[in-house]
Design a protein around this nucleic acid. Structure first.
Lengths: 242, 242
DNA sequence: CGAATGTTTGACTGGAGTCAATGAGGGTGG
DNA sequence: CCACCCTCATTGACTCCAGTCAAACATTCG
């Protein structure tokens, strides 16, 4: 039933670093199973530890952090190939929660095996650091967006980044993507109010730069959007996948 | 001249994970020297790779990211024990720049040795991932601050976090800390304008919660500040040091 | 003493937030 | 089959937090 790592369709995408078959076999050994959860299911909880680590095989979700007053910051949207639970795995505590936005298929790894997994091949430890560094890198960008970009710039930035991430893993369809998130989610990711987010999107729509309806976003002019978002259309950097 | 790792004064602080003497010896082997730079010196550059990695032995600095329009987001302030250049070390490119705010003493490591260093002891790879996860965790908090907290909340949060970080490495003096940064730096870290930052600080001063003059910040009421900043006064999590 | 750098204030503006109401589907149960 | 409800998107009116502009201070330094 479960997908064999060696036949994993994700692994073949350009986005992911290639590894040799013995390395893939090691990962297969580390993988304890597969899990499917419905949209809306919480996967990991801020402040808690987790006995399991996951790689998203299919579907989308979001990471977020709650403030004591109830406000929510969406840390990032997560896509196939993203690794979940690394913080719990190495520091013993998650800094954010993760929840499924669509139905989600996850490869499940046992946290207790993490150490033996690294010992068996030191390169795995390097890859873990690499994964964490990728996240850190991304979050630096996100922080810059929320701190310095205006609403239009932020929205353009976010959609361009998401489009490129999806493109690199073969999830685009021409210039459009399936985007199952609510405007509220995007607003919470960019530190904007829902109303202002909606009006800003309306502005981009009226300029024919963007389309958003029925869970699909169309980037009619990627280059122009990137320009507005003060960013580029460079391919995302290669990253490891577990 | 250079400090021996086994006699490193930082290593002894509560903040840092303990390691056995053979592990320390390994790090000593990895260390190629020490470097002292003046205030204002750039250490690492956004978008570039770096042949060297550093651990701050003494002094303070800041990480920042520039936007194409010249705006600056300060990603974080860096303190003794912080490891610089990890992104370049594992992904081959820095996502931000780092520069010295005070005169800085740095332990220098050779990037080319990183891999042999990890191979020699897989635990080092784990620690690298741990370090990266610590940063990622912090940046999630920072993102939440910039995205969700108001100006007063953000400033209170930042100063409390900084105070606690310094306290854990023995850099506080009662309720005050040496804080060599400009208000502009804090403003850029929190996504606020200089003027508004200044006025908000003035507000906290007038409430006797804060003092800031001559490069020293006094947190007259840590608990109350933490409350305002929607945070706690918990000790920072233990972290590895290289 | 002038030039630089950083802090502090005041006056004004504006981007984004808040409040509130209306639409537009999608379920579902009577 | 449709009224009712729930969720999410959309719009308008109004407010306010934070940004911008500008000028005055305070220190340091050559």
């Amino acid at each position: 039933m479960a997908t064999k790592c060696e036949h994993c369709p994700l692994r073949r995408k350009d986005l992911f670093a290639k590894m040799n078959s013995s390395q893939v076999a090691e990962i297969q050994r580390f993988k304890v199973g597969e899990m499917v959860v419905d949209a809306g299911t919480p996967i990991l909880l801020q402040g808690s530890n987790s006995p399991q680590l996951y790689t998203i095989l299919h579907g989308m979700g979001l990471r977020y952090r709650l403030l004591s007053n109830g406000q929510r910051q969406v840390i990032s949207f997560v896509f196939p190939g993203d690794f979940l639970g690394l913080q719990a795995g190495v520091m013993g505590e998650m800094g954010h929660s993760v929840e499924a936005t669509t139905k989600l298929t996850l490869c499940v790894f046992d946290r207790n095996e993490l150490w033996s997994f690294i010992k068996a091949d030191p390169e795995r430890g390097f890859e873990l650091a690499w994964l964490a560094a990728i996240e850190e890198h991304f979050m630096g960008e996100a922080l810059t967006t929320v701190g310095q970009r205006t609403a239009v710039q932020a929205i353009a930035w976010a959609l361009v980044r998401i489009y490129l991430r999806m493109q690199a893993s073969g999830l685009t369809n021409g210039n459009s993507i399936k985007f199952p998130f609510r405007q509220q989610d995007l607003a919470d990711a960019l530190g904007l109010s829902l109303v202002h987010t909606n009006k800003t999107i309306a502005g981009l729509k009226s300029k024919q730069l963007l389309g958003w309806a029925d869970g699909e976003v169309h980037l009619h002019n990627l280059k122009k959007l990137a320009e507005i978002g003060l960013t580029t259309v460079d391919l995302p950097k290669e990253r490891p996948i577990l």
